[in-house]
């Protein structure tokens, strides 16, 4: 049966034969509704599967809104909130969008509770030139419109493909493609770089 992760290294390739659940990060949850139902009934292993599949999307959403140093903590808070409130989710197929909304609301609360709520605090690089450049680019991405910002961070930070972004967010692949294209165009403009010629 077909594999889902094959690492041909010039040596004997290792495959995961016959698997529908593998380490392939682009895979979709085979039965999201059943997984959500299992979580509702208290199945923590089922929730761990959801966590594994959606954690990068949530990380990207929060990274676009709160200081880098606090993102990991807030990711965990978002999932704890989702776990305790999952009975409120009426349509299991909307899990990704529902979870994303929790993340956006949590980021809003975070900023509201911050002492200087008007602007996102500037990131403070540790002195490393690459880190400084990374955080400078991140600040520029954060100024893009929400849809472009989130989609670009999922692609450029989290390494998600367009199909995977669509599957997790609930957006259509066409919308994701447009967000990526337009977001990248705006980012290039902000960075002052010309698109590469084909």
């Amino acid at each position: 049966m077909a594999h889902a992760l094959e690492l041909a290294c010039g040596h004997r390739p290792l495959t995961y034969p016959g698997s529908s659940r593998t380490a392939d990060p682009t895979r979709a949850i085979p039965d999201l509704a059943a997984t959500v139902r299992a979580v509702v009934s208290g199945d923590q292993a089922a929730f761990a599967r959801l966590y594994a599949d959606y954690v990068r999307m949530i990380h990207a959403i929060l990274l676009g809104r709160v200081p880098h140093r606090d993102v990991d903590d807030l990711v965990q808070e978002v999932f704890i909130t989702a776990y305790t409130r999952i009975r409120e989710l009426r349509n299991a197929a909307a899990f990704g969008g529902w979870l994303a909304t929790i993340a956006r609301n949590r980021a809003t609360d975070y900023r509201r509770q911050a002492r200087e709520p008007v602007e996102l605090p500037a990131e403070l690089p540790g002195g490393d030139a690459i880190e400084s450049e990374t955080l400078a680019v991140l600040d520029i991405v954060r100024k893009l419109p929400d849809a472009y910002r989130e989609t670009l961070l999922m692609r450029l930070v989290e390494g998600m493909t367009g199909d995977e972004i669509a599957a997790r967010t609930g957006l259509t692949p066409g919308s994701v493609r447009v967000n990526l294209h337009r977001g990248m165009k705006m980012l290039r403009e902000q960075l002052g770089v010309e698109p590469a010629q084909p």
């Binding site: 990274l63 993102v71 808070e77 999932f79 776990y83 450049e133 680019v137 991405v141 930070v157 390494g159």
Partner: peptide
Amino acid sequence: LLGRLRSVPPLPHLPEAD
């Protein structure tokens, strides 16, 4: 550049669901 910001925090300990 931005891939340096990638991070997957561990699954938090889950409370009992209501």
